[in-house]
């Protein structure tokens, strides 16, 4: 089995889906000849042509809205938002249109589409190339929200997203694009949208995370293992709809829960996980549920010392694990 990067896994998934189904096409800024600013679509323009790998005008509402129209007609668009930070002009089309189409037409119209958006900081991108925005979208029934953390999952989940009959928002941890490598079998396989993944079994406490923070959490778990703390790690993978059963099962086993995400704390996705645990596993808890999240400032600052202050990392996660283990 070949070891490939996260972004190569994403590229492979799109390549295979373009080859599999002629209704699939890619639309976004610079996705054509340039192959995407992160090179996620590199080679696809040459292979499939400008009709299936389309450079859109610089207008995000239309990237998503044109995708919706094409999806209504029966196509399977993969819309790329260059950075998640630029998804806001398309917010209306995502929240009011894509997410509500099936419900508002009583099922007469559905929107099978994927919106890919690289998210997250730690790359020197400042306020507008670093945002984590899942919290804005995990409050929206009608959308599915997916965040892969490994090349295997990225490929398998993206293929599932393309085939899903609903709008799927696919947030990609861009810092991990080339940093995160893993074994991915060649050819056809999918990872289902929905189930979380227990990526490390343990008995002392559970850490719930996703995306880049899940990658860091695994490193932190290694570190504290040497100190005798046995951590279970759950990669949530699909944030909406969320896999309650896996969350509750793990907490019932370990009795302690830490939730880690890069998006800021207040009103963030971690609050929902904490609520699920409080409602469903209160009597199994041996400690208060803890959240480790980005600070409540508007976004990630540019200057390195300030960026480092904002960003979580394996050391900060390890420290939060130690504190919870001591409780």
């Amino acid at each position: 089995m070949a070891e490939i990067t996260l972004i190569e896994a994403i590229r492979q998934a799109m390549d295979e889906e373009l080859a599999r189904d002629e209704n699939v096409f890619i639309v976004g800024e610079d996705v054509g000849q340039r192959g995407g600013v992160f090179r996620a679509t590199v080679g696809l323009f040459e292979k499939y042509g400008g009709e299936r790998v389309i450079d859109s005008p610089l207008a995000e509402a239309s990237i998503v809205g044109v995708g919706i129209g094409a999806a209504l007609y029966g196509m399977r668009p993969i819309c790329e938002i260059q950075f998640a930070d630029f998804i806001h002009p398309a917010f209306n089309q995502i929240i009011n249109e894509a997410a509500k189409m099936c419900y508002r037409s009583n099922g007469e119209w559905t929107v099978p589409m994927v919106i890919r958006a690289p998210y997250g900081g730690g790359i020197g991108g400042g306020l507008y190339h670093s945002q984590s925005l899942e919290g804005l979208f995990t409050h929206t029934p009608g959308l599915k929200v997916v965040v892969p953390s490994s090349p295997y999952d990225a490929k398998g989940l993206l293929k599932s997203a393309v085939r899903d009959p609903n709008p799927v928002l696919f947030f990609e941890p861009k810092k991990g694009y080339r940093l995160i490598k893993g074994e991915v079998p060649e050819g056809e396989f999918t990872v289902p949208i929905g189930p979380a993944n227990v990526t490390r079994a343990g008995s002392d406490l559970t850490v719930f995370s996703y995306g880049m923070m899940h990658h860091y959490t695994l490193q932190a778990a290694e570190t504290v293992a040497k100190e005798g703390i046995d951590v279970e790690v759950v990669d949530l993978r699909t944030l909406y709809p969320v896999d309650r059963d896996t969350i509750l099962k793990s907490v019932r086993k370990t009795g302690k829960a830490l939730i880690v995400h890069e998006d800021n704390l207040t009103g963030g996705y971690g609050g929902e996980i904490a609520a699920i645990i409080a409602e469903g596993a209160f009597s199994d808890l041996d400690a208060p549920v803890r959240r480790l999240a980005g600070p409540d400032v508007p976004a990630v600052p540019f200057s390195h010392p300030m960026q480092d202050w904002f960003m979580l990392n394996p050391a900060k996660i390890a420290e939060a694990i130690r504190q919870l283990a001591r409780y």
Binding site: S62, G65, V66, G69, A70, Y73, M75, P77, Q93
Partner: peptide, 10 residues
């Protein structure tokens, strides 16, 4: 915008 998306599909 949806009209243009449908037009694109056509």
């Amino acid at each position: 915008i949806h009209a243009s998306g449908i037009g694109l599909a056509i």
